[in-house]
């Protein structure tokens, strides 16, 4: 086999198993099937063009996600007015738990049952509602399970920022989940 054929084979061998993950992330970020498909194709072509700069032995998934995120930025970032800002509270990421602790639920559902009730649609809707910056970091950390270090590389931000942004993102997501739980009557607040 010629050298370029080997490169070609190798690229597809690494990239094809990641197509579902890439598509899933692109879909969550754009909300549209066609945009997501275009974004994945664009990212793959860019990655292939830059494949000689990929260092073997390093994390290919993080590398290609960085390309996907960069390819996506110009598109989806335009739609975002500005990153959501909220006051930062050290224990914000425990919002839902703390609220549920202070709450009576119907039919004596415990905290864990409330999570079961929230399953699926409410989480999906909440993820769609938070800012793109927050959604992006939750997808990378909790869905694609990248490490803090990998996320720092993908988003080109310091690890400290990854951690504080994640914590704010989780807090914001949990506030929405709490609202859904109240709206749907899984809990009633004593407050």
């Amino acid at each position: 086999m010629r050298k370029e054929e080997i490169t070609h084979e190798k690229f597809l061998e690494l990239a094809m198993p990641l197509v579902d993950s890439l598509y899933s992330t692109a879909f969550r970020m754009t909300g549209k099937k066609m945009d997501a498909e275009d974004l994945v194709q664009e990212a793959l072509l860019k990655a292939y063009g830059a494949f000689d700069r990929f260092q073997e032995g390093t994390n290919f998934k993080a590398w290609i996600f960085k390309i996907l995120v960069n390819a996506g930025i110009s598109n989806y970032r335009k739609k975002s007015v500005r990153p959501q800002t909220s006051s930062y509270d050290e224990f914000e990421e425990y919002y839902l738990y703390r609220k549920l602790n202070k709450t009576q639920s119907y039919d004596s559902l415990n905290k864990f049952d409330v999570l079961d009730e929230l399953f699926g649609d409410d989480v999906k809707k909440s993820l769609e509602t938070i800012s793109e910056q927050f959604r992006e970091i939750i997808i990378l950390a909790d869905i694609e399970e990248f490490s803090y270090k990998e996320i720092a590389e993908i988003l080109e931000i310091p690890i400290g920022t990854v951690m504080s942004r994640l914590s704010r993102a989780r807090g914001t997501l949990q506030k929405l989940l709490w609202e859904f739980a109240k709206e749907n009557g899984y809990v009633r607040s004593k407050e």
Binding site: S24, E37, V123, D142
Partner: peptide
């Protein structure tokens, strides 16, 4: 886990075919 499992999307066979 609930967040992780909330929105699993898979690429269509058509997309995979187009990519290849």
């Amino acid at each position: 886990e609930i967040v992780k499992n909330s929105t699993k999307e898979t690429a269509s066979e058509e997309l995979k075919r187009r990519i290849l």
